[in-house]
Write a protein that binds this DNA or RNA. Structure first.
Lengths: 348, 348
DNA sequence: CTTAGCACTCTGCCCGCAGGAGTGCTAGTA
DNA sequence: TACTAGCACTCCTGCGGGCAGAGTGCTAAG
């Protein structure tokens, strides 16, 4: 990472880092004097002023007004984040909180995710969010069509513990025996992956007796949604109250839009998948780097978690661009790591 | 309702109603002049001032400071709400929105609830919330124990379309045949209600072979949680962004606490069950009338919905004490009515 | 019982001003 | 050449005073 960023010269980099850290800490625009005193560079504030002017020229800093200190731009945060060392940054209290949170074994991945999102929001004081696994590579362990009288419930259980249900109209031609036969056929699909089972079902629907036809199509449809769009219905969000904290300087209107965005799960899912598609490990999206976060002054720190070698989901935090990136990144990294261990273990 | 409230005299009542309506509309403390002009009582502002002073004495109004107008106290809102006529109050646009929302038939009650909560939040501009049915009187239509390799998934499906799952440790003594036998036994419980099935399971666990013992206890436990505490996991909340709107005068800190409370589902569930336990139809809780809403300046309007004659859940909205009660009550009443129709129809 | 009239109170806002923070520049120094 | 001290300048912020406005509460009269 640190190699890819434009060269700035060691001191400019140090000054920029100092501005970011001080601004994140205090929330006030940072002046040359403060940096000269605290950053330990051994130069006077006048020299710092020259550097600050240069950094502003380069687009890393900005000025609320003439006689105020500097605050970082999105690019400034970007430079800062890219210049951070790859690991570490976890405070001892955080490390302990993580350890004790996962001390109790929970077997249901969905529950684990909910807990992890809560944990992240407590660790960082931002909002936590997670995209649970979708069902592409997972084997199907159970498919059912349950006669509910006026309707039919279609149920699919995946090997990772995923359960999808849909309630659909009862086909006119269906009689009790239809369900018995259908279930027998469905039992034959166990062990196939979702896409395989879906394909096979379309075939069965075409071949099988006409009263089963419709049922099979419903099951196929259930499997299809389980593989993609339906993830939305299961996005996990927690700790949003943190975003309303006074420490976050969001204007009321921006805050409202932020909450709206968090509720439109489709949007958040697109952001997260955009993020994790481009980068394979821990990724940070800062303000305007993504259109959705841009006009919200929000940043997202997210990391994928895996089972074995395949990525099965994403977990992260949302906070203000003026975020404690060190702590957020360390927390997300650590939680994603634990999740990967857990998921790998649960699946084996 | 209107009979139970303390007698005030017609004009005092009219003045109080005028203050509430004007304050809800404008958000500004209301002065005697405004009322004299708009309320159409045909008396001068001086007379109104006397009435206002009396209403303040009685605890229905308060004064931010000497030279400001009046705003209602919680008791003031209470009087206002109790004096409202029992029905009506739905605007035409709202009526149409409700009709078109339910035009498309959805069979899954859980999905219907999510949609209804969204609908309510849009209708009222507050946050919607709902407690879905628990599983006390419902017949069990399917019970399963699924061998997931290192763990076991217990699955219970209720007749209303409810699905409960739990992932538990795989008993050491279990072999594949254990699951086949267990499922056969579980099939025998179909049609029993949750408590009946639970009782029967404890019996089966005691009688049955030892390798099934543990499985049966897990199933019994799943049924138990489905009947009570577990409801928390399914509380539906929507439109919380509305609460962050500038129109709502909540201080930042109060807003944060409000969001925290909404996230602690247990708390909200207790509030809602407290509410619906005491009143059978549409109920309104205003600020300090309940400890949880008291220091949040929040009110809750909620109504139960039923299937046939039994109450199966609750739906409502949360907003500021300075709420448009007429619109909120009408919307909640109408949505609860539709839900009752739908649930009754789905269950038959 | 109601009302007109009026003195009084308190807020909100505008204004101007002083203080302060921070910059940018220039000239001098290692 | 790179740094620094010094200083003029800019712009925000906070504060006090004064003024207009809203609204009350009281009194006295109808």
């Amino acid at each position: 990472m640190a190699e890819q960023q434009p060269q700035l010269g060691a001191r400019k980099g140090a000054v920029l880092r100092a501005v970011v850290e001080e601004y994140v800490r205090s929330g006030e625009p940072v002046g040359s004097e403060t940096i000269a005193e605290h950053a330990g560079l051994g130069v006077s504030s006048a020299t710092i002023r020259n550097e600050l002017a240069a950094l502003e020229e380069l687009g890393y800093l900005k000025h609320p007004h003439t006689s105020a200190g500097r605050i970082p731009t999105d690019s400034g945060y970007r430079f800062y984040v890219d210049s951070l060392p790859a690991g570490g940054g976890l405070r001892d209290t955080q490390r302990r909180a993580i350890a004790s949170h996962y001390a109790e074994a929970i077997l249901d991945l969905e529950e684990v995710l909910k807990g992890s999102v809560q944990l992240l929001s407590r660790l960082t004081q931002y909002a936590g969010l997670a995209v649970p696994p979708n069902a592409s590579d997972e084997p199907v362990v159970r498919l059912e069509v349950i006669d509910m009288g006026p309707s039919v419930m279609v149920l699919a259980v995946g090997h990772h513990g995923r359960v999808d249900k849909r309630v659909v109209d009862r086909p006119d031609a269906a009689v009790p025996a239809t369900f018995t036969r259908a279930e027998a056929r469905l039992a034959g699909l166990r062990g196939l992956t979702y896409p395989e089972a879906q394909a096979r079902l379309l075939q069965l629907a075409a071949e099988g007796p006409s009263d089963e036809h419709e049922l099979m199509l419903h099951v196929a449809e259930t499997l299809r949604t389980a593989q993609q769009g339906d993830r939305a219905a299961h996005m996990v969000v927690g700790g949003v109250a943190n975003l309303a904290d006074e420490a976050q300087a969001w204007r009321r209107e921006t805050l409202r839009r932020l909450f709206e965005t968090l509720e439109r799960e489709q949007d958040m899912l697109r952001v997260l998948s955009d993020i994790t598609a481009t980068r394979s490990a821990l990724s940070v999206t800062i303000g305007g780097e993504h259109p959705t976060t841009g006009d919200l002054d929000a940043s997202i720190v997210a990391a994928p978690f895996k089972s074995g070698d395949t990525t099965i989901g994403t977990i992260g935090v949302v906070g203000p661009t003026r975020m404690d990136y060190v702590s957020a990144m360390a927390s997300v990294r650590a939680v994603a790591k634990r999740l990967t261990e857990l998921a790998t273990e649960l699946d084996q």
